[in-house]
Design a protein around this nucleic acid. Structure first.
Lengths: 160, 160
DNA sequence: CATGAAAAGCCTCACCT
DNA sequence: AGGTGAGGCTTTTCATG
């Protein structure tokens, strides 16, 4: 993962349909050279796919919320039901701490959202956070984040 | 947004690099017909882009967390600093309720994450949730979610 | 919305630096 | 590891029905 790889990732995260020719031009390399790098990134799983991004609001799902679940023993959502039963769930994360799961959900209306919360409530205690607006989502992964480590723990402390 | 549009969206969310030819074959339409539909979806903003999906772990950012911020007056993150200062933040959502903001952040290490939390702590009280694993993320937006409204509020209640 | 053809652009290979 | 050039092919986009 050198700097050229990061430039390629930046371009492809911004436009996943760039041709090797155009991509090569942007990172000042030849087409075969970028093609080989892209294939390596794909093979290593750094790039794990190419997707069209859908605007949920325009597609009829204007409501977004985060739902934290504190699952009741033996009734955890992930154990008892397939996620297919809840197409409104667009993300599931297992958490440390008091809540066992964080969900991101999308709904077509408040009534829809209310019904969803009722169904989810059968599996766990819920802590619901309705999203008012989202300044951004899906910001590209960049080398900047890896470099940004301004505050270091105190000397002698153990870290990972 | 008829059923054909949804089939197109499903295919393009799964593989954003499909050619019109291949896409046409999958939704049993001709190439010019799908091309016109895709362009309409793009023009209307239903499709708002095409992106390569990067695996954050493979790219050097294996730690994910959600951070809820209860911003101190006049020091709200979004008002006082550009988000550029925190490349670790991959999502920002404004929330209703006690917390004013939900962040999704990615870090290279625990030490990195610790530093990030310290920097963010200057802007707000934090409620941090470390992600252990994520069963899925970025599930395609589908017509199923819009159709799924099993529980309806009681008769006569006002809903939106 | 389908068909078919023409033109453009793309990928990739072999070869070389 | 990367550049060049040519070959062959797919894709796109018209025209027309």
């Amino acid at each position: 993962m050198d700097q050229t790889d990061w430039r390629i990732l930046a371009e492809l995260q911004q436009d996943g349909r760039l041709s090797f020719n155009e991509l090569a031009r942007r990172v000042t390399l030849s087409a075969p050279a970028v093609a080989e790098r892209v294939r390596r990134l794909e093979r290593d799983g750094v790039i794990d796919g190419y997707r069209a991004t859908v605007n949920p609001g325009k597609a009829g799902l204007p409501f977004t919320a985060f739902v934290q679940m504190r699952c009741m023993l033996g009734r955890c959502l992930l154990k008892t039901t397939a996620a297919d039963e809840f197409p409104e769930i667009v993300e599931i994360h297992r958490l440390s701490g008091r809540a066992c799961t964080m969900l991101k959900v999308r709904a077509a209306s408040m009534a829809h959202f209310e019904g969803l919360v009722e169904r989810l409530g059968e599996h766990a205690e819920l802590d619901t956070h309705v999203v008012l607006s989202t300044p951004f989502e899906g910001r590209p992964v960049s080398a900047d984040a890896i470099r940004a480590r301004p505050v270091t723990p105190s000397e002698g402390w153990t870290t990972s």
